[in-house]
Amino acid sequence: MFGKGILRGLGITARHLLETYIDDVKRIPSRYAYDRRLIKQPVEERGIFTIQYPEEKRVLPENFRYIPMLIFDDTTGEDRCTSCGICAKVCPPQCIWILREEDEKGKPIPRPAEFYIDISICMGCGFCAEFCPFDAIKMNHDYEIAVYRRFPDLVLNKDELSVPASYYAQLYPTAWAEEEKRREEERKKKEARAKAAAARKALAAKKKAASQKAEAQDGETS
């Protein structure tokens, strides 16, 4: 029949309207109740797929990456970064600039004096976070970073990049738990190593003392 396609097409639209309505009714509490919230796109629902940003926002998965952030310790305020330079070397568009701290004699101190990321160049690949050996740089979830000027607003310096470790822990609960576990193990290992070393030292000292004593005795007797 001529025009059947058009009618069926209109049928789809009508069905979606209905299904969206049914989804809404089924959802308790309703999507529109209270404040607009974070929305997760449901696999089960069959209605519309749109999220009414900025009133509603998506729930972001833990692995979501946008631009990098630098992490400092909550209690001590120390940067975790040791300015080893790996992130700057691995960054594909080369948008990280790190100035390493130096003492008066020019000897490097493992701490960044300056740390810049030109996030208008950053491609959000996440390599810096993936390869940092000190868990010092991670990917932020905050994507609302629009500014009026590229320069200097999109060149972030160390202060603008820095976030406390607790912020990271809240964004990445699973990764944080794993890292904590690993750090704990490392600390234990370190302690054990230190203990063992101390014991070895003590033993060696004892032995040395004993042998010296023996030598002294030898000397006396001979």
């Binding site: 330079g85 700057a88 300056e114 810049y116």
Partner: peptide, 11 residues
């Protein structure tokens, strides 16, 4: 990697 980025990367 470009040499200007580290350790003297001064943007």
């Amino acid at each position: 990697p470009f040499g200007s980025r580290w350790p003297k990367g001064d943007y």
